[in-house]
């Protein structure tokens, strides 16, 4: 077998791939931001003494973690229109990625809160602080440092997993790649380029997380 590489394909379609990468980043950033918002509340709900709240939070987390993201995407994109009418692919993608990320962030937040020494809660409560005050001023601030590394991992995972929305014709990086590969029959070149573009996005995030982790350690 002898295959001649044609790198000109990559050069020619590079701007198109970059467009896809831009959408990938956009989707990931929105989803992670929403995920952190959802996950913080659900994570706090998970450790709530209120049985209903902790049960609801657990159901949400377990449903998301226990089902494929592809199925979740189909549920939103093809299922929800039964009630809400057609949903644009971009909206369906953002909803799916955000709700998915929210569940994983919730677990990160829950683990972060539960890793704080129980004496902290007791000290705050013994001073007459309410449970919400204790959460807000004592426990949550201490979890920040501990959840930065796993949050970084979640960001990277979501950036890669966002490729799944290519199946509903959203032209992010993978979709762009398969369109070009289909047109040029230069699969090897294109998918190599796509792989490297993902690496160019994920490696800096990993570096950034390491850096943040080191900075936070210094302040300990």
């Amino acid at each position: 077998m002898d295959y001649t590489w044609d790198l000109s394909v990559i050069v020619r379609f590079f701007p198109v791939l970059l467009e896809g990468a831009a959408l990938t980043i956009e989707l990931t950033c929105i989803a992670v931001a929403m995920g952190i918002l959802i996950g913080t509340f659900v994570g706090i709900g998970r450790v709530s003494k209120h049985k209903g709240i902790s049960a609801l939070s657990a159901i949400y987390v377990n449903f998301i973690r226990g089902t494929p993201m592809l199925v979740q995407l189909y549920l939103v994109y093809f299922g929800l229109p039964a009630y809400f009418g057609p949903i644009p692919p971009l909206v369906a993608a953002i909803i799916t990625l955000s709700v998915n990320s929210g569940a994983y962030v919730a677990e990160i937040v829950r683990a972060g809160i539960q890793s704080i020494d129980r004496g902290q809660l007791e000290a705050a409560r013994s001073l007459g602080m309410t449970y919400p005050q204790t959460m807000r001023y004592v426990l949550i601030p201490q979890t920040f440092k501990r959840i930065v590394p796993p949050l970084g991992n979640e960001f990277i995972a979501l950036l890669k997993d966002s490729s799944i929305v290519s199946v509903i014709a959203l032209e992010e990086l993978v979709r762009k790649g398969s369109m070009i590969a289909g047109r040029t029959f230069r699969s090897f070149e294109i998918w190599t380029a796509v792989a490297f573009l993902y690496l160019f996005m994920t490696l800096p995030i990993a570096r950034l997380v390491n850096y943040a982790e080191r900075r936070l350690k210094q302040n300990d």
């Binding site: 020494d117 004496g119 902290q120 007791e122 000290a123 705050a124 013994s126 001073l127 004592v138 601030p141 201490q142 300990d220």
Partner: peptide, 13 residues
Amino acid sequence: MGMVFQRFNLFPH
């Protein structure tokens, strides 16, 4: 009621 613990439990942050 003030309480003082064996392991201090100051807020480290």
